[in-house]
């Protein structure tokens, strides 16, 4: 067990190193690193100072080594546009994205899994067909267009919810959160709904497919024979058996939701990391781009690692084979 965890952690470190090489080659070696690190408006003196500070006169292998050292220390340079350390900039935007992403994924799971189980348990009812229709819709229609329609319907035409921005926030543990104020929740609602629709569709499909398979197994037959109620069977056996793929997808989707949040945040002017990266791309704020790339890569590797390890805990078969 411990050996497995150590092995996976080592793999993750190797992958992270490979990605750092790719980013280094992509942004520093292929492009002109002086343009990347120094604002075009900088004076000659600052230019020379920065070239020296970042060791751009050094050989390539040494530059890469220094780049790695700076990464480990969390030094990603300064943003041209906001004129502050990139790492501080990203961390100041992170709570907004995390709040949006978590709300969306949790909402999609809490709603999608029971509906999916129902659609798998009674596949031929009208309600099940409606649930599946909604799920196909959520799968096919691009996120950004749904966002536009949501804004047009609920913000412009009906005026129920605000069309964008984050609205008022309240402080908890020194971080600003929207869900603590009533008005903040109204601002959170539409972006979260927009972001969750795709995840919802996926959860419904997964839960439905899993339930349909599980209902045919001996587990359910014996549970019925022992006189358990249908609800108990669904809750105690079916839900438990379909939880493995759902946990995997929950973990993996948490990451990809972060990627989709780029789109949602842009549409709703939600001041998170996704909006920051799109703004940085259009203003050529390259230190921010590099930092975002590395942090997202790190995040994905952490998520994959966690899912792998959680998997082993959830599935006794894997646990016995590995140990």
């Amino acid at each position: 067990m411990l050996g497995f965890v150590i092995q996976r952690v080592c793999q993750a470190v190797v992958v992270m190193l490979i990605i750092s090489v790719l980013v280094f080659v992509g942004v520093y070696a292929v492009g002109n690193p002086i343009d990347v690190l120094i604002s075009p408006d900088a004076t000659q003196l600052i230019r020379e100072q920065t070239i020296k500070a970042y060791g751009l006169d050094q050989p390539l292998w040494k530059q890469y080594f220094d780049f790695l050292v700076r990464l480990v220390q969390g030094d990603f340079g300064r943003s041209f546009v906001y004129n502050m350390p990139v790492i501080d900039l990203i961390f100041s935007r992170l709570p907004a994205t995390i709040e949006l992403t978590l709300t969306a994924v949790l909402g999609a799971t809490v709603l999608g899994v029971p509906l999916g189980i129902y659609a798998g348990y009674r596949p031929d009812t009208v309600l099940s067909k409606m649930i599946m229709g909604l799920s196909i819709f959520g799968f096919s229609v691009p996120t950004f267009w749904i966002g536009l329609v949501l804004i047009f319907t609920f913000a412009v035409t009906l005026g129920w919810f605000p069309a964008g921005n984050r609205g008022p926030t309240a402080s908890l543990f020194g971080i600003e959160w929207s869900f603590l104020t009533g008005e903040g929740l109204a601002y959170l609602f539409l972006p979260a709904l927009n972001l969750s629709l795709f995840k919802f569709a996926m959860m419904v499909r997964l839960a439905r497919a899993g339930t349909r398979e599980t209902m045919l197994t001996d587990t359910v037959k014996f549970a019925r024979a022992s006189g358990e109620s249908e609800l108990t069977i669904l809750y105690r056996h079916v839900l438990r058996l379909i939880s493995i793929p759902i946990v995997t997808v929950f973990g993996l989707e948490l990451g990809s939701t972060l990627a989709f949040a780029v789109v949602t945040e842009t549409i709703f002017s939600w001041p998170g990391v996704g909006k920051l990266i799109i703004d940085s791309i259009s203003t050529l704020d390259r230190p921010v781009m590099v930092a975002y790339l590395m942090l997202v890569a790190l995040l994905f590797i952490m998520i994959n690692l966690t899912v792998d390890i959680v998997y082993v805990f959830l599935d006794p078969r894997l646990r016995h084979r590995r140990s």
């Binding site: 992958v15 490979i18 992509g26 942004v27 993996l252 990451g255 990809s256 990627a259 989709f260 780029v262 789109v263 990266i277 791309i281 781009m289 790339l293 997202v296 890569a297 994905f300 994959n304």
Partner: peptide
């Protein structure tokens, strides 16, 4: 496999930006 663990939209976004 490594590439598939990253969402397609993110890869496309980064490349289109670069």
């Amino acid at each position: 496999d490594l590439q598939l663990s990253f969402p397609a939209i993110l890869l496309a976004l980064v490349l289109a930006a670069l």
